[in-house]
Design a protein around this nucleic acid. Structure first.
Lengths: 194, 194
DNA sequence: CTCATTTCTTAACCTACATCATCTTTCCGG
DNA sequence: CCGGAAAGATGATGTAGGTTAAGAAATGAG
């Protein structure tokens, strides 16, 4: 069952009977994304959320100097979308790219709205999902304002232990908000300390 | 009617009939907060959301060096709470303080949950509210990573024109993530440029 | 397996912003 | 409307992290 991971995930927050599960699944679509392929480009309107079941996506913006800033990683079990664009249906600023060959499940905005009407319980699920995401983002703002790069790296390591050795350093550097060069220096000075 | 502002606000997102409005209002409680009074201290469990109808609140954290970091302002028409603590019902890190004598409306976590059961439509309302907040927070993360202090100030001015002359400079400085000294210098250099 | 591309490292130098200190101005509580 | 506290201005100096550059190591497409 390709949708099992997602169904289990949802069942942590709302109970679904068989009929509701079927309705839900009828709105889903599997997707395969090749390494380095984009599922969303800045300037486009985001029409889907993606739930990753294998591999990893990253969401990033590009600033006026051409520098990339990673807003989020979506490894197994995570949702990703350009929330601004998805909600407003206006062109967004997020690029979403596969870091390796990745499999996922697509829920289109249209189907998500149908779902809200057919099974209102899903309002609850996505409210909770959004709340959790909001909390994480607020914490990240606080961290970025009050901690050094080294401390932010420490937090990243605790929060995403599986990603540390998996991701290219430059991606982690971009996520915590420093240059790859500085990140490299920081890491080697951390190793010396021990 | 003291709850009018809030009811109008909600009516932009969901339609309420008279009975639903009454149920909602039965869960609300007005509150008065004196200047410099705290409605929430870090370390406490956040049990309420506050909707401001007059005056202004600020939510901020204090880092290990004793420096304050403003996460949000809540002027007229805005909600404020420590979302982490409110959701998890664990001790939070946010302080909420009145910048002047302030009036608001309290919705307790308990009543909010009752409301979800009595009028499920409110799941929708708070989902939308949370989504909007998430989008704003994500944008702030991107801005903090990719823009200079001066550019962030420009964005603040556009987004919160009413707050610019109203708030003490040090509060704005804290929100955009610089020291009051640097903010002061930045402002005077901006004035010279014109 | 291999070579071209991407990623990582290291070093010298640079800058946006912080810190500390002192003075002036504004504000608000009695 | 006054006095003390808080907020703001400004100068000198410090630093976390950026930039540029150039070589070394890893990696993945064919």
């Amino acid at each position: 069952m390709p949708f099992d991971l997602l169904i289990n995930n949802i069942s942590k927050y709302i109970h679904l009977d068989e009929a509701e599960r079927d309705i839900f699944m009828s709105h889903l679509k599997p997707i395969q994304i090749k390494r380095k392929q984009f599922t969303l480009n800045e300037g486009e309107i985001c029409r889907n959320s993606v739930f990753v079941t294998n591999g990893c996506l990253r969401g990033f913006t590009v600033d006026k100097n051409g520098i990339e800033h990673v807003l989020s990683f979506a490894p197994l079990g995570w949702w990703i979308a350009d929330m601004y664009s998805l909600i407003s249906q206006k062109p967004g600023i997020l690029n979403i790219e596969a870091l390796e060959d990745t499999e996922g499940i697509i829920l289109s905005k249209t189907n998500q709205e149908k779902l809200y009407h057919e099974v209102p319980k899903f309002e609850r699920f996505f409210r909770i999902l959004t709340e959790n995401s909001l909390v994480a983002n607020q914490q990240r703002i606080v961290d970025n304002m009050s901690l050094t790069a080294e401390e932010r790296y420490g937090i990243f390591c605790k929060r995403y232990p599986t990603l540390i050795d998996y991701l290219p350093q430059k991606q982690i550097a971009s996520y915590i908000g420093v240059t790859p060069e500085f990140f490299s220096r920081m890491r080697s000075s951390l190793i010396k300390k021990k």
